[in-house]
């Protein structure tokens, strides 16, 4: 029992002296993980779009070659960055750049370096998740979009990726939480995140166990909050379970409230005016618009 009391007093001692350092470290960790996950997702989405550009025998030869090349490059990128430890990638990129450029180019900012490394690493995982997400969407969705004349890019951004993104939200959450923890390896290039402060503080006073306890609790706090927020976002993405029926005056409706915009109508002036109103009152005003009562 007294061991626990000892631990408690040690922790409060550490927190008194280094509390702001720990908090600062947590902030750096969260920020790095968040920014890198977002950029990683964008890399993943881009790879997803590029990877799925269709081609057939009518595609001009140079374009077909380019598309094949892109797929090979993405494949290599994914395999290399998924298949090597991030700690090594950090060293490789951080020290590799000045090594190859003869010291003319180097990272003058540790944040840039850390964000770049974690983003590239996350991007490799996300590229595969996005691919999985795209495959999971019913091909009918693509056909529906193609059939109304959307290009590949439009199909992806308006129809497929929003749905794929919903399906891979758990994966994105996974990646974010992994990033919160794995950014700890960035100490190798001297980036001071949460774990780096543990190394620094225990180097001063040898209080390994109490400091580790603080770190454990800190990481758990961050990941639990992250899980909670992610669940909330998923719920939001699913949209409402119910919808409002839009009730209009059936008689007015069948009398032709909506007339073909191109073919002219007896209500021309009205429909133009309503168009202008629409711009001002952008929003959920379907209900008011439906009945003809404003006539």
């Amino acid at each position: 029992m007294d061991r626990f009391i000892k631990l408690g007093s040690d922790i409060s001692l550490l927190w008194e002296n280094y509390g702001s350092a720990y908090l600062g470290g947590m902030w750096s960790t969260l920020l790095l993980a968040l920014v890198a996950t977002v950029i990683g997702c964008m890399i993943g989405l881009l790879c997803g779009i590029l990877n799925t550009i269709p081609y057939n025998e009518y595609t001009p030869r140079p374009k077909r070659f380019l598309l094949k090349l892109i797929r090979i490059i993405i494949r290599v990128y994914v395999e290399v960055f998924r298949g090597t430890p991030m700690v090594l990638q950090a060293v490789f990129i951080y020290y590799g750049l000045p090594y190859f450029s003869g010291n003319t180019m180097q990272f003058d900012n540790l944040w840039t370096a850390a964000i770049l490394i974690v983003s590239i690493n996350t991007g490799a995982y996300m590229a595969e998740s996005v691919r999985g997400g795209i495959i999971s969407i019913d091909p009918g969705q693509t056909e529906g979009a193609k059939a109304i004349g959307m290009t590949h890019f439009q199909t992806m951004t308006s129809v497929i990726l929003p749905q794929a993104l919903r399906n891979i939200m758990p994966q994105i959450g996974n990646n974010f939480i992994i990033n919160v923890k794995d950014t700890s390896v960035m100490f190798i290039i001297g980036f001071t995140e949460f774990f780096a402060f543990h190394r620094y503080i225990t180097g001063v006073n040898n209080m390994y166990f109490p400091s580790a306890a603080i770190e454990m609790a800190g990481y758990l706090c961050m990941t639990l909050i992250a899980s909670f927020i992610l669940r909330f976002i998923e719920k939001r993405m699913d949209g409402d379970d119910s919808y409002e029926l839009v009730q209009g005056d059936q008689l007015v409706m069948s009398a032709g409230t909506y007339t073909h915009p191109d073919r002219g109508t007896p209500f021309d002036e009205y429909s133009k005016r309503e168009g202008r109103l629409e711009k001002v009152k952008e929003g959920k005003r379907h209900k008011a618009d439906m009945g003809g009562d404003r006539l």
């Binding site: 109304i148 029926l245 839009v246 209009g248 409230t257 909506y258 952008e282 379907h286």
Partner: peptide, 29 residues
């Protein structure tokens, strides 16, 4: 996206055809 119509114009047209197929009450579903 494809015909590059303005939002209110697209909305009006969509409502016209949705009325034609009798789906006006369900536009928010």
């Amino acid at each position: 996206k494809v015909l590059h119509k303005k939002k209110f114009e697209a909305r009006e047209r969509a409502l016209y055809y949705l009325e034609k197929v009798g789906m006006t009450p369900y536009i928010n579903a």
